[in-house]
């Protein structure tokens, strides 16, 4: 029990790290249409070209944790969400190679801009679709050619919510990494996005409360609401503070961390609703867990390397801390 729970937490950690880290660099792609000047786009790309690869590694890590610790869930979830996963992978390919080719291109530069913007947006949208389908509960037994179980009004709502969330993270990141015109525009966009994200969070929460009686029970039974009320209240508080911060210039980094806090709170709300299921109403993490021999074998690796990875990732961000300067070149 304890080991499986540990891996459940690890899976959550991996997903959260992915969503926050790749969130801001996918988000820059979503914000791309609002920055149409070539030098501004150069600046945006330069601010993440050294980290996108590491950020995306968390997606692979989330996948293999699921594979290693919950192999049944890995097969069931991935084959059920086949179409959005495949589209997401293709989208990630296009936006990933755009980093390498854009700076070396001349005539084809607009195409790489397009690949980056569309690829990032589509990848984020697909991740939102997958989130929505998972929350609603995918029926892995009912796979047939015509079923579009990953496409519903709810999953479209979560898809746009995820896009708005990533764009918010990106605007805070960009504001932190730039000066002048770019910073101001990013902050202005950020303020609108805070409002959009808070509305999206409220809509998604209300929808699940109305749709799913067991989630409603979890929130409203007994003293639960009292214990869980900090989640929505803190979200509101963080959102308000963020809106305020983006209006002024006295805080360089705080907006970004407030946006991260919004993500953490939203994620916590999700876990409250889903625990202990990996596939809602069908498969708990206990049922899906791998044999103890496998969980034990991976444990020392996780305990040694995850802190180490966090340490050198942090070091990497410090090396590239501060604003992106125009005199900085690539390799």
């Amino acid at each position: 029990m304890e080991l499986a729970f540990f891996y459940f937490l690890l899976l959550g950690f991996a997903i959260l790290m992915y969503v926050v880290l790749d969130g801001f660099d996918l988000g820059l792609g979503i914000l791309y249409p609002w920055f149409d000047d070539e030098s501004q786009r150069d600046h945006m790309m330069r601010s993440i070209s050294h980290v996108w690869d590491g950020n995306e590694t968390w997606l692979v890590f989330g996948g293999v944790v699921l594979f290693a610790a919950f192999p049944v869930a890995y097969g069931a979830i991935l084959s059920t969400l086949y179409v959005p996963i495949m589209i997401m992978l293709i989208a990630l390919i296009f936006r990933g190679v755009a980093f390498e080719y854009r700076f070396k291109a001349h005539r084809s530069k607009p195409w790489w801009d397009l690949a980056f913007a569309v690829g990032s947006s589509v990848a984020a949208f697909c991740q939102g679709l997958m989130l929505g389908s998972l929350v609603q509960g995918v029926d892995s037994d009912a796979i047939d050619g015509s079923s579009l179980n990953w496409l519903s009004p709810f999953s479209v709502l979560t898809a746009f919510s995820v896009m708005a969330g990533y764009a918010l993270l990106a605007s805070c990141y960009l504001a932190m990494k730039s000066r002048g015109e770019i910073r101001d525009r990013a902050a202005r966009l950020g303020r609108r996005l805070v409002v959009a994200v808070l509305i999206a969070m409220a809509l998604v929460s209300l929808w699940t409360l109305v749709e799913a009686p067991e989630i409603r029970a979890r929130w409203f039974d007994g003293y639960h609401l009292l214990l869980l009320s900090p989640l929505p209240l803190l979200s509101l508080g963080a959102g308000w503070l963020l809106f305020h911060d983006l209006g002024g210039k006295q805080h360089e980094q705080r907006p970004f961390f407030l946006a991260v806090a919004l993500f953490v709170l939203g994620f916590a709300g999700l876990v409250v609703g889903l625990f202990p299921y990996l596939v809602p109403r069908q498969l708990t993490f206990m049922q899906a867990q791998a044999p103890v021999s496998s969980l034990e074998f991976l444990l020392p690796g996780v305990l040694i390397f995850v802190p180490l990875i966090c340490a050198y990732t942090f070091w990497g961000y410090r090396i590239f801390s501060g604003k992106v300067e125009d005199f900085e070149e690539g390799y």
């Binding site: 590491g54 590694t57 692979v60 890590f61 293999v64 944790v65 594979f67 290693a68 610790a69 192999p71 049944v72 890995y74 097969g75 791998a290 044999p291 021999s293 496998s294 074998f297 991976l298 690796g301 996780v302 390397f305 995850v306 990875i309 050198y312 990732t313």
Partner: peptide, 19 residues
């Protein structure tokens, strides 16, 4: 085969991809 191959690939990610 997840119980065998999963942890091996997880070690690959932990010790190589992130690095």
């Amino acid at each position: 085969t997840g119980a065998v191959l999963g942890p091996l690939m997880a070690y690959e990610v932990l010790t190589a991809f992130f690095l």
